[in-house]
Amino acid sequence: MTRQALSTSALHADRIAKSFGGLKVFNDVSFTVPAGGLLGVIGPNGAGKTTMINIFTGRLSLTSGQVMLGETRIDGRSTFENALMGLVRSFQQTAIFNGHSVETNLISALRFSKRDRSVLERLAPLLDQFGLIENWHRNADVMPYGLQKMLGLAMALATQPKMLLLDEPAAGLEKSERVNIDAYVKFAQEEFGCGVLLVEHDMEIIKRLCPSVIVLDGGRLIAEGPPTEVLSRPHVINAYLGGSDEEDSDVTH
């Protein structure tokens, strides 16, 4: 990629803050995902990770601060505008179009992002590896959970995004299925040149994939750096031990 292309697709959060009523969900958080780069986001449940993704995509508005994708300010714009600019998310729970085949799901993703079928040809190796091609004409919502989840991720990638926001892609997958996430992230970066913001609880995946992570706790950025080093810091360990184990859920439909 040229330098020009790179500078248009870095994701930059600048002192962002969000509160609901009087409750601060997070506060004064800044970081950058370089174009084509990969940044992990970890933190105990309720740290504001999903809320952050909802803000980047435009579903929620910011209280203060700004979010830039390249040179464009993207916070407060509508979700579909940001998606058409190349900022696309995945969902924590399965998010597919129920009652429709795998093919129709993927075709829909292409149509909505104004891409043509050639993107599917490029995705074919990945689709095959996940087992989606053998289920091509099956109704997506009767497939096993793992396949549905991979279909949702494949749909996000089929839009050919510049920046992918992955919200706990491994959540709910079997241990044996989790290597698919590694393959997916590598494929997105290498074949599509996507930047990736990876929110994940599975520290093995984080350690395997991410050169760098940020740690959110109680809506604050408490640490930043390579995962193994960051995870050995005492205040990060404390945050995890003290953190509640409630689910922070997201509405997927």
């Binding site: 995509t57 998606a83 829909s108 996000a156 439909h253």
Partner: peptide, 14 residues
Amino acid sequence: AAIETNDVLAESLG
């Protein structure tokens, strides 16, 4: 069909 079954997903795809 997409808007009927999952409009949040449809918008997130553009």
